[in-house]
């Protein structure tokens, strides 16, 4: 059952920010995550501030320099079906298309997707865990089959649930935030917060701040991007393991690029180990094998998520092989 709350639909970004800065207010974009959080009473809410009266936060457009500007309220389906996104930022289109189900993609927004709350079932149900201000992580020696293998830092073992976030990090995107103290730009890579920094926050958003748009720089020629997701069922599910790649090729050789994992860590997780191995090399069977092995170096699996080691290795092998074939 939902708790009782006030509902406000401001007509300007400034008004929305003012409302969000007061009391226990929560922003409502698509609402696909918020409704579940409210029903489970994960956090107190006195006021729900709808962003649906802010059309300026919607839409996809090319910038003058050939980059991309995506309004935070753009529906995931609008993104995954957008011809320019598909053509020039394929990894992002794929990632948006892998989210949830058609209904969720029609309703869910890009801003909401990167700001969503973790899916840890202890966090989501009636356990007063660390992230909810309690004294215990129940996952560390509990049912942790869907939890992280990197970045838990001995405190909280969530994985970041977003599919689009790793793709945006791979594409070196920047988030524009608006808040009580004005606007600021934050590279997506710096947008997410590890539990060791603050166990009760997932993003750098300050009170009253919202994401207004995402900007992606123009892709350097030779760049190919992709997103691959493995889940426990084929639709309406979060990643057991996922990988976003944006690799720049010179003919068959990888010049540079990013490899970012989902389902691996409390934030979209850059696998610098894989990046380092493929950089400057042709994707031969041996290079791919070395990269697959490297993806889990430094991983700290819990009792029930050890399968993620084999899964990430297998997925990297499959994805790099595909990349090599298309090079």
């Amino acid at each position: 059952m939902l708790p009782s709350f006030d509902y406000i639909r401001p007509k300007s970004v400034q008004a929305a920010i003012t409302h969000l800065a007061t009391g226990s207010a929560q922003a409502h974009a698509g609402g696909t995550d918020l409704m579940g959080c409210l029903r489970e009473r994960i956090f107190p809410v006195g006021k729900v501030v709808s962003l649906s009266g802010l059309p300026e936060l919607r839409g996809v457009s090319e910038t003058a320099d050939g980059g991309l500007r995506i309004g935070a309220l753009t529906a995931l389906s609008a993104l995954s079906e957008h011809p320019i996104v598909i053509k020039r930022f394929g990894g992002l289109a794929q990632a948006a298309g892998e989210v949830g189900s058609p209904q969720l993609r029609n309703q869910g927004t890009l801003g909401g997707n990167i700001c969503q709350k973790p899916r840890c079932w202890y966090y989501r149900t009636d356990f007063t865990c660390l992230r909810k201000g309690g004294g215990t992580c129940f996952a560390v020696d509990g049912e942790n089959q869907f939890h992280c293998i990197f970045g838990g830092g001995g405190t909280c073992f969530i994985v970041h649930p977003s599919d689009t976030a790793p793709a945006l990090v791979a594409l070196n995107a920047t988030a524009r935030l608006a808040g009580p103290r004005g606007s600021r730009d934050v590279p997506l890579e710096k947008f997410f917060v590890l539990p060791e920094v603050d166990v009760q926050r997932e993003t750098v958003l300050a009170r009253g701040e919202i994401v207004t748009e995402i900007r992606i720089p123009p892709p350097v020629s030779g760049t190919r991007s992709s997103y691959r997701k493995v889940r426990a069922r084929r639709s309406w599910d979060f990643a057991l393991a996922g990988v976003a790649m944006a690799l720049r090729f010179d003919r068959k050789r990888v010049i540079d690029g990013r490899v970012v994992l989902s389902g691996a860590a409390p934030i979209p997780w850059r696998s610098k180990e894989v990046e380092q191995i493929v950089r400057g090399k042709e994707l031969t069977v041996d290079v791919i094998a070395a990269a697959a092995k490297a993806v889990t170096s430094g991983a700290e699996p819990l009792e029930k998520n050890g399968y993620k080691l084999a899964l990430f290795q297998g997925m990297i092998e499959e994805e790099l092989t595909l990349m090599a074939a298309s090079a």
């Binding site: 579940g36 049912e143 069922r233 639709s235």
Partner: peptide
């Protein structure tokens, strides 16, 4: 192990097959 409670009591975590 610790609480004996069901952790997947919703339509996302209890995974029915989808279409």
């Amino acid at each position: 192990g610790r609480t004996g409670k069901m952790v997947n009591r919703n339509w996302h975590d209890y995974k029915l097959p989808t279409a």
